[in-house]
Design a protein around this nucleic acid. Structure first.
Lengths: 200, 200
DNA sequence: TCGATTCGAGACGGATCGATCCGAATTCGA
DNA sequence: TCGAATTCGGATCGATCCGTCTCGAATCGA
């Protein structure tokens, strides 16, 4: 980020930590309300109760500002329940919880939509997305180690299959609730055809 | 749309059909290049080689203009090969082909990203999305009728599972190719666990 | 031919925003 | 206590765009 590398010089008035937080919070709010491309420094400053110069002093443009604000949003966390069904159900349930209880739900489509035609944003945002997928990949890897999943499973494709329904509904506006987690995980694990393992 | 309901009055110079097409094409191009929210009538006019008034004469704002332009993009078409694997493989392969050979790939994220915080766009765009999903739902329904899929299958969830990986990669920028169709369809049908039907 | 409508091009006022600059306020070291 | 450094919120200037309007040329029906 831009601001974390500023240990603040010794003399003079120190930067207000409160203004800092207010700016980042306002950034997320405006991101949800108007999206990335319509996000203005002016609007953020107004919402945060801060002068524009206070923002420009810490971030060179709205790009690093948005990236840092996005970093404040909670992530998917790895959960180890002992079996693949429990791990995936718990994780996806937590994820849906995050989507509905934080600005994440509005922020993700806004940034992803902009990413498509903004190479600079893409370059900064894509690695973050990859990082945040890692817990899901780890769960699948653990499942393969336990023998619950095939050794030669394409982990990336499997991860996309698991979060695909959530992503799709998030971007196209269909309803999302934690009630869909159980059937979603089952369908992903055992397929549309629905043949359960014989040893259940 | 706005313009299709104008049978053109009898007297005076008729509206140029060429200008009409140029405007819609330019709209798609600008949509890919800068996204919905940064799309300007001025930019479209310039790209189309057309005066701004020529656009305002046919569309009241960029919202109906974008909706009509999106309607020109090709759709997913129903394919009946006789079995569910063939149907899905063929359809998704065609879909990926469309994504790479038309502006669709850049247009979808731009509109979906805006949809999240633009209720007016959402109201017009969501029904279109539902319409375009219909062929996929139809294939699943036919598969259930053939006995290839369970009767009580959740068709909406199944459809989301099938296109989920494509959607996810489309929005987060991962690579997409027709080579992923076969493993994608297999994984969706028979699950991560990978138990193929015995009679396969 | 004449009136009506369209065409591309651009001028216009109003609004918004980016980026910088300003004076006032605050907090440091000495 | 005091001066220097740095912050603060607000003001300012230039650029862009919207939506309307005007202009001369083009193209139709009557």
């Amino acid at each position: 980020m831009d601001s974390s590398s500023n240990p603040a010089p010794s003399a003079g008035r120190p930067r207000s930590e409160q203004a800092h937080r207010a700016i980042l919070t306002a950034t997320l709010e405006r991101l949800v309300e108007v999206g990335y491309s319509a996000l203005t420094i002016e609007g953020v400053a107004q919402r945060a109760g801060v002068g524009k110069a206070t923002i420009y002093r810490r971030w060179s443009s709205k790009l690093p500002l948005v990236i840092e604000a996005y970093g404040l949003l909670p992530q998917l966390e790895d959960v180890d329940t002992g079996n693949i069904v429990g791990d995936l159900s718990e994780m996806l349930r937590n994820y849906l919880q995050l989507l509905t209880s934080t600005p994440l739900r509005g922020v993700i489509p806004s940034i992803a939509g902009e990413r498509a035609h903004n190479p600079e944003l893409s370059e900064l945002f894509d690695p973050i997305v990859r990082d945040r997928r890692r817990p899901l990949i780890a769960v699948l890897q653990r499942g393969a180690g336990r023998g619950e999943l095939p050794d030669d499973l394409d982990l990336e494709l499997a991860a996309d299959l698991l979060i695909g329904p959530i992503t799709t509904r998030l971007f196209f506006g269909a309803r999302i609730s934690t009630a869909m987690v159980q059937p979603m995980v089952e369908m992903a694990l055992w397929g549309l055809v629905g043949r359960r393992p014989v040893e259940g």
